[in-house]
C-alpha cells in the first residue's frame, strides 16, 4: 500500500514534468468558484440576513423539521434498497450472459435520462389506488402513492443507476481465482460472497450509496407527483423551499436550503470518512 506520509504544512504535491498543472488547476478553481462556490455563498449570505432568532425559529418549525425528516429519511431508505438491488443487478450484468443483457444494461441508464417529472407521473399512475399496481396493493392495506412509501419508490427509481454504475466496474475486476481459492479452502457459496466478495466491493458500494443518497435528498421532479405533498406527512424539504419562494419569503427558503446544505455536507463527510477508512483497510 503506497500511502504518502502526512505532509508537513501545505505544499503542492510535486507536479509531473509534463506541463499543464498551473493551467488546469487555475481553470478548475475558477470554474468551481463560478459554478458552485459563489452560488452557495450567496445562499448562506441571504439566509444570514435573517438573524439568528428568526433562523432558529424557521429551523425548529415543525413543518420544516418534518419535511427534512421525510427528505433525508426517504433518501436513506431508498439508497439502502438501491445498494442491495443495484449490487445484484450489477452482478447479473457482469457475471451472466443472457439474451437481452445489453438491453437491460442500457435500461439501467434510463432514470438518468428521463425527465424526472415523467418518471413521477408514470409511477403515480401505476401506484395510485386505482393504478395497475396500486389497486392490487390496496386490498392488502398498502398505500403507496401520496405517502412516504411513494417517495421512497420514486427515489429508488432515480437512484438505481448510481449504485449499478459504481459497483459494476469493480465486479468486473474481481479475479475469478479469488473465488476459486475460497472454494478450495472449503468455503461454500454464501461464505465466499459474504466474506470474500462483498468486503472487496464495500468501498464501491459506499460510493454508490453516497451518490444515490445525495441524488435522493435533492430530488424534486419525480417526488412531488407521487408524494401527495401533505404537510407533516409527505412533504419534502425541496418542495417546502419552493412553497416559501412562491410566498416571496426568500429568507425562509434560503434558511431551509442552508440547513439542507449543512446536513448533506455532514452526511457526505461521514460517508467519505467511512470510505477512506475502508479503502485504507481493503486497499
Amino acid at each position: 500500500m503506497s500511502t504518502t506520509p502526512a505532509q508537513a504544512g501545505w505544499r503542492f504535491k510535486a507536479p509531473s514534468v509534463i506541463p499543464g498543472f498551473g493551467l488546469t488547476l487555475g481553470f478548475s478553481l475558477a470554474y468551481l468558484t463560478l459554478i458552485i462556490l459563489i452560488p452557495l455563498a450567496g445562499l448562506l449570505l441571504r439566509s444570514a440576513s435573517l438573524g439568528w432568532a428568526d433562523f432558529w425559529a424557521i429551523a425548529t418549525d415543525e413543518r420544516t423539521v418534518k419535511a427534512l425528516e421525510i427528505s433525508f429519511g426517504t433518501a436513506i431508505v431508498a439508497a439502502l434498497v438501491n445498494v442491495v438491488f443495484g449490487t445484484i443487478v450489477a452482478w447479473i450484468l457482469v457475471r451472466y450472459r443472457f439474451p437481452g443483457r445489453r438491453i437491460v444494461d442500457a435500461m439501467v441508464d434510463l432514470p438518468f435520462a428521463l425527465p424526472t417529472a415523467v418518471a413521477g407521473i408514470a409511477l403515480t399512475t401505476l401506484y395510485a389506488p386505482n393504478g395497475w399496481i396500486g389497486h392490487l396493493l390496496m386490498p392488502l392495506g398498502i398505500k403507496v402513492a401520496y405517502t412516504p412509501l411513494g417517495i421512497v419508490i420514486a427515489l429508488i427509481f432515480i437512484g438505481l443507476p448510481f449504485v449499478v454504475r459504481t459497483v459494476q466496474p469493480i465486479i468486473e475486476e474481481i479475479d475469478k481465482e479469488v473465488e476459486e481459492a475460497a472454494a478450495t479452502l472449503g468455503a461454500n457459496r454464501w461464505q465466499t460472497i459474504s466474506r470474500v466478495l462483498l468486503p472487496g466491493l464495500a468501498p464501491a458500494i459506499v460510493t454508490g450509496f453516497a451518490l444515490a443518497f445525495a441524488r435522493g435528498v435533492g430530488e424534486y421532479g419525480s417526488v412531488i407527483f407521487i408524494a401527495g405533498n401533505l404537510p407533516y406527512v409527505s412533504e419534502i424539504a425541496p418542495l417546502l423551499i419552493v412553497i416559501r419562494l412562491e410566498e416571496y419569503d426568500y429568507a425562509a427558503a434560503t434558511a431551509i436550503a442552508s440547513i439542507m446544505l449543512g446536513l448533506s455536507f455532514a452526511m457526505l463527510l461521514v460517508i467519505n470518512l467511512i470510505q477512506s477508512w475502508s479503502r485504507k483497510r481493503y486497499g
Binding site: 479475479d175 481465482e177 475460497a182 483497510r281 481493503y282
Partner: peptide
C-alpha cells in the same frame, strides 16, 4: 471442490486483499 480438501496455489496468488 469443498469436499475434496485440496490445497490449491494459484499463479497470481489469489490472496484475499482485504
Amino acid at each position: 471442490i469443498q469436499e475434496r480438501n485440496v490445497g490449491f496455489v494459484f499463479q497470481h496468488y489469489a490472496l484475499f486483499r482485504h
